[in-house]
Amino acid sequence: MFPTPIEKVSPTARTAYHAGVWVSLLLWLLPLGAMFLTSFRSLADISMGNFWGIPSEWMIIENYSGVFQTTPMGRFLLNSLMITVPTVAGALAISSLAAYALAKYNFRLNIVLFAMFIGGNFIPFQILMIPVRNLTIDLGLYDTIIGLVLFHVAFQAGFCTLFLRNFIKALPNSLIEAARCDGAGEFRIFFVLILPLIRPALAALAVLIFTFVWNDYFWALVLVQSDSVRPVTAGLEALKGQWLASWQMIAAGAIIAAIPPVSMFFLMQKHFIAGLTMGATKG
């Protein structure tokens, strides 16, 4: 292990190290802590300039329930969920099929298609914006959840295919050949043999795509406009204009918006990091 494991140094140095770690963590998360503290305050505190002291009144329940009562935050959260969940399911479905084809079949164009899926991941959204917006309008799907879902499914399919293709490629060919010898059809092999084997990869992707799509702001801005369809990111932006200097409300709203991806991350941490750091180690 590098650097030297901390168990091997003197007890004093060890204590100093741990103190250092927690102090730097505190500094690192200072903006977040400030946001939390602010979301507990009253407007009076904020206009009097009490930002760092103990709140003079604890307004936790008032502020957080106020967000739901005075704004469509509940609706925004529901919209985000209705956009995110079908996207995850759709993207995983079409890309696991495509990934299997690219990983285990030899045909011309294989590498070309693979390169296309990889390249598609990195393009700037702006090059897609006008045509995708026009297409969505022409299909009558502008300002609908399904319009957003279709785009997200298509775009996320690139990353999912890249990820799953590498995962399936690492599975031994002999497994598939043995199944073929036993007379199993190609689709049966995929559904009965491959699909159960790639479950960890699917889990990793599910959390990642959930977070990416939940946090999307650009496409929500371009493809929807009414409160009844807006996800929480675009909703928060609209509320910022409405709340002006009511920072306690903005802070509470922001924290509510952050809870789903954050809890997803803590629940599925191992999968999340495995997905995000794919390729960071050799082999």
Binding site: L97, G120, L128, M129, P131, A154, F155
Partner: peptide, 30 residues
Amino acid sequence: HQLKIVPWMLLTPALIMFSIYVIYPIIQSL
């Protein structure tokens, strides 16, 4: 011909979606 046809069947849904929403829009924007 199973081994030649199946990969294209598997690829079809992803290719259709990707072409409509990513590849073709790039060309249109250009």
